[in-house]
Design a protein around this nucleic acid. Structure first.
Length: 332
DNA sequence: AGGATTTGACCTAC
DNA sequence: GTAGGTCAAATCCT
């Protein structure tokens, strides 16, 4: 990973990431407290993230090689396997098949849930394998997956999964296309809210889909030292990135009341290695990958909230799975 | 029985 | 001709 300004740009973004991390931690601590403070913290997180976006968008992290290749993908391949690096893929060529998929592509490196697992951790979507190919120079074959709802809902999302040569526990996953399908649980959730507020309902669908909260150890220590429990807050997988803005997939929610990160539970983002071992989406990412993901997801959650009628939500914190969420800070 | 996976064949770009 | 990506029949799994 190179950078301009003798890594000065890198340090700036890393600094901002650290700032975001601290703000998120504070937000977690205060979630059960003063709503106004939470709003301010959320607004700050948004601002800092925006600054990071600006740094990246200004070209500080444009890899010359990638730029030359005309890629619009983020600097996700800090340690890409030789042949899974999308920069080497001819998506901007005249290849008709591949040209179709250049709309959206997103590469991440993920770890397997269990060492030696054949596939990486669940990314929240259901996939159907439709092919496998031995790739020249790669030790492991590349698997081709498409969304299970391709037929039923015409979802065009696909992904390619290839085990990293240097570390078999890691997978390079390249997502193509956009999910236009509706998640099962999301659909059920939507049904309950659609009548009241269609926009907010849609947002909740996406929230539920994308954000995962690891709760390992939480129940074991809940009630004991209360606020000391560490809950890992993980940004979602590819969801936000592969979806068009109008198909926003921002954050997701804790699935059970026990997962509440309120009551002073501290939050740790996935910006740094986390020992958590739940089935939530955990990625082995560089700070830049993490920042880019955070940026894209935050970016989309805001646009999603706006599109979903945020003012109404701002007035009344919405609830999901027994929790209330106040996102009005994003609009401060 | 129906859905998911496997795997060889086929298609397209280079 | 080669490599990457997809198709589709065969097979497996629940």
């Amino acid at each position: 990973m190179e950078s301009v300004d003798e890594n000065g740009g890198s340090r700036l973004v890393v600094t901002e990431l650290g700032h975001i991390k601290e703000l998120v931690r504070q937000l977690g601590v205060n979630l059960g407290g003063c709503p106004e403070h939470c709003k301010r913290l959320a607004a700050q997180i948004f601002d800092v993230t925006e600054r990071s976006i600006g740094m990246i968008m200004s070209g500080h992290f444009d890899c010359p090689k990638r730029s030359a290749a005309g890629l619009d993908s983020p600097p996700f391949s800090a340690t890409p396997s030789p042949l899974s690096d999308v920069s080497g893929m001819p998506f901007h060529t005249n290849n008709k098949k591949r040209k179709i998929m250049e709309k959206r592509k997103h590469q991440v490196r993920v770890s397997s849930e269990v060492g030696g697992a054949e596939t990486p951790v669940d990314d929240g979507h259901s996939w159907r394998k439709y092919g496998q190919k031995d790739i020249l120079g790669a030790k492991h074959p590349r698997g081709y997956y498409r969304c299970t709802h391709r037929k039923s809902q015409g979802c065009a999302a696909t992904k390619q999964v290839q085990r990293a040569d240097e570390d078999p526990t890691l997978f390079d996953v390249i997502y193509h296309g956009e999910h236009t399908c509706i998640h099962k649980t999301v659909a059920a959730l939507a049904a309950g809210h659609a009548e009241e507020n269609p926009g907010a309902s849609r947002l909740l669908q996406n929230l539920s889909t994308s954000l995962t909260v690891n709760t390992e150890g939480l129940t074991a220590t809940a009630g004991h030292q209360g606020c000391s429990t560490t809950t890992s807050f993980c940004f979602s997988s590819q969801a936000a990135r592969v979806l068009a803005p109008q198909e926003h997939y921002p954050f997701s929610m804790p699935s059970t009341p026990e997962n509440c990160f309120g009551q002073g539970a501290s939050l740790s983002t996935s910006l740094e290695p986390s020992p958590v071992t739940s089935d939530s989406n955990r990625f082995s990412m560089t700070p830049f990958q993490a920042e880019w993901r955070a940026r894209s997801e935050l970016d989309e959650v805001v646009s999603a909230l706006v599109a979903a009628g945020a003012p109404a939500m701002e007035e009344t914190p919405f609830s999901l799975d027994g929790f209330e969420f106040d996102v009005s800070g994003f609009f401060a």
